[in-house]
Simulated assay, not measured.
Amino acid sequence: MSTFMSAFADLVEQLADLLRPLFHDSAAAAAIILFTALVRLLVHPLSRAAARGQRARAELQPRIAELRKKHGKDRETLQKAVLELHAQEKVSPLSGCLPSLLQMPAFFLLYHLFSSSTIGGDANALLGHRLLAAPLGGRWADALGDGGLIGAPGLVYLGLFAVVAAVATFNYRRTRRTMAAAAPAAGDEQLPGLASVNRFMPFLSFFTLFTVAVVPLAAALYVVTSTTWSAVERAVLYRDMPGAAPAAAVLT
């Protein structure tokens, strides 16, 4: 593990060296953003597959509506019939989770790297890098203790919180519109446990604010970059689906 961490630290340092002429002392932060973009590019084919799966589920809604009429109030039979229909058409109701799950190792790798004081027995030089005035290995609590809410490090976090809040608000509105458009068919809500997930889903993006506040700044940069990418990506991939927000809405 230490060998792998050392290799990853060297990769971040090399990317930072390449970006230093443009970003100077914030080059390592720019390297993390670039690394995040590369991870998202690798996962993008799965995101496109998830979008196709969502369209396929939308196409099943009329057939699911027929099953609801057929089975009436027999909830158990209806759930079984809906699951069988998804299996028959090779459509997974949870296929959209895969891209997010595959990104978790990259996040935890950055979290561990910038939470460790040593790498392979040597001092972790990456902890000396900064995003403007905020250390990449620091947390929001550290920034509050170093100048307060509007101190130089605190302002960096306020900027990140502003980006996260804007993206979360966009995602909340888009998700609510999408779910409202799909509500008349009410097919997915018959899947066991999925109705509760759907009620909770619009608020998930706001939990990113908590994540950014408690993890090292380097990992927070990964989260902010990835969630912003997701908002733009989903706006484009789902632009022709009922209730989906237009891609231009991301920029406003």
Rank of each mutant, 00 (worst) to 15 (best):
R176P: 00
A168I: 06
R199M: 03
A182K: 12
T208C: 03
F170C: 00
A185L: 03
R173P: 01
R199T: 06
Y172Q: 10
E189K: 08
A168G: 08
L191Q: 04
D188H: 06
G193H: 00
T208Y: 04
L209I: 12
R174D: 14
Q190F: 07
P202Y: 07
L209K: 13
P184H: 05
A186V: 01
A166M: 11
T169A: 13
A183L: 08
L209M: 07
V197S: 00
F206Q: 04
F207D: 05
F207L: 15
F203A: 15
L191S: 01
F206H: 11
P192T: 02
L194Q: 12
G193Q: 06
N198V: 08
M201T: 10
R176Y: 00
N198A: 15
G193S: 03
A168E: 08
M179W: 08
N171A: 14
A180M: 06
P202M: 02
A195S: 15
L191C: 06
R174P: 04
T175Y: 02
G187F: 02
R199Q: 11
D188R: 02
S196A: 15
V167K: 05
M179E: 13
G187Y: 02
Q190S: 09
L191M: 05
F207W: 07
P202H: 09
Y172V: 07
L194V: 12
R177I: 01
L204A: 15
A182I: 03
M201N: 14
F200V: 13
V197N: 03
M201P: 03
E189W: 06
D188M: 00
E189C: 06
A180K: 14
F200I: 08
Y172L: 15
T178Y: 08
F203Y: 15
A195I: 06
F207R: 06
N171P: 03
T169R: 15
L191N: 09
A195F: 10
Q190G: 12
E189P: 05
L194F: 13
A195W: 09
T169L: 13
E189F: 04
T178A: 12
G193I: 03
F206I: 01
S196R: 10
E189L: 10
V167W: 00
R199L: 12
M179I: 12
M201L: 15
N171D: 14
D188S: 14
L204N: 05
F203H: 12
D188L: 15
R174E: 14
R177F: 09
F207V: 11
F203L: 15
D188T: 03
A181Y: 09
P202R: 01
G187W: 09
R174N: 14
M179T: 07
F170Q: 08
G187N: 05
T208K: 04
R176C: 09
A186F: 04
F207C: 10
T178N: 10
A180H: 05
